[in-house]
Design a protein around this nucleic acid. Structure first.
Lengths: 150, 150
DNA sequence: GTGTAAATGATATTAATTCTCAGTTAGGGT
DNA sequence: ACCCTAACTGAGAATTAATATCATTTACAC
């Protein structure tokens, strides 16, 4: 299932949220970015079209979108939180460029064999997994042969 | 390769670090825990044997241990950082109980096929991956059949 | 032992996020 | 089209996590 602006508006209303112009602007700011963005970056973008928005509203909007699973949190090691609009509602993971932050979705992580093995060996009931693969995108490889790790 | 206290002391010295009693206490606090611990928890434990230690020293010790790859960062979604003493120096991942925090190491994540496919399809040069599997350990399953997600 | 670079602890600072609360507003009901 | 009210917002304060500063102390090579 692919997400469109209309669908998102519907999802908000279904869950009893109001579709305010602020929320719409935050949504647009995240959706219009190919790479993951943190709250400060979202703020900068949103203020171009909605200069009076406060940080609290940005954070609250992000939280709402995260609660509805409309955004993913990416790059959990970094200091501030990075979010990415979900491009698909199905199970997927991210391939993240460690230099420019560009992300690509991928499916078929194929961990079910591994999870079965772990259940057998440890008795854990598996609930889920975090998987993120990082590397350098073709553009960054072409731009500088010597990587500049962040 | 398994890590022992002696080996760790040697690793510190090899890298030009001094083995101070504070560092030793931090090391012990992390190593003596089966589950992952955050800086505040480490502080509480360390102060039982070394009451005058300051938070700055805790953070510096953790950073040193992380730089030497002697501790792993676990559960990246939580607000504060959680660390776990490395029980093995080889490539491995963690199976974490979402209820009690107990962790089990596992190897053979077998992502090389996936990574090859992604390189072929996207042109990314893969540098590494984050993988963490979570579930409920046998003890927690036995204790309460209805999970209590955190 | 001595000297010195490294380490410590107290404190200040920075940065990210959350809280509070008075005023505003989306959107259902009329 | 206009109310009404619960939901929402923005400003600023508060909280929390982590890092920086700096005078004092200490591990350890000599």
């Amino acid at each position: 299932m692919r997400l469109t602006a209309n669908k998102i508006a519907g999802i908000l209303r279904q869950h009893g949220y109001r579709l305010t112009p602020q929320r719409h602007a935050v949504l647009k700011a995240i959706a219009s970015s190919q790479d993951c963005v943190n709250p400060a970056e979202i703020c900068t973008r949103v203020r171009q079209e909605y200069p009076t928005i406060g940080m609290a509203t940005i954070y609250r909007s992000i939280k709402m979108l995260a609660d509805l699973s409309l955004v993913c949190r990416v790059n959990p090691d970094s200091r501030s939180r990075n979010y990415l609009m979900r491009r698909s509602m199905s199970h997927h993971h991210h391939l993240v460029c460690s230099q420019c932050g560009r992300t690509i979705d991928f499916t078929h992580c194929d961990l079910s064999q591994l999870e079965k093995r772990l259940t057998r060996e440890t008795g854990f009931i598996i609930e889920g997994h975090i998987l993120e693969i990082y590397g350098r995108c073709p553009e960054c490889c072409a731009a500088s042969p010597v990587p500049n790790p962040r």
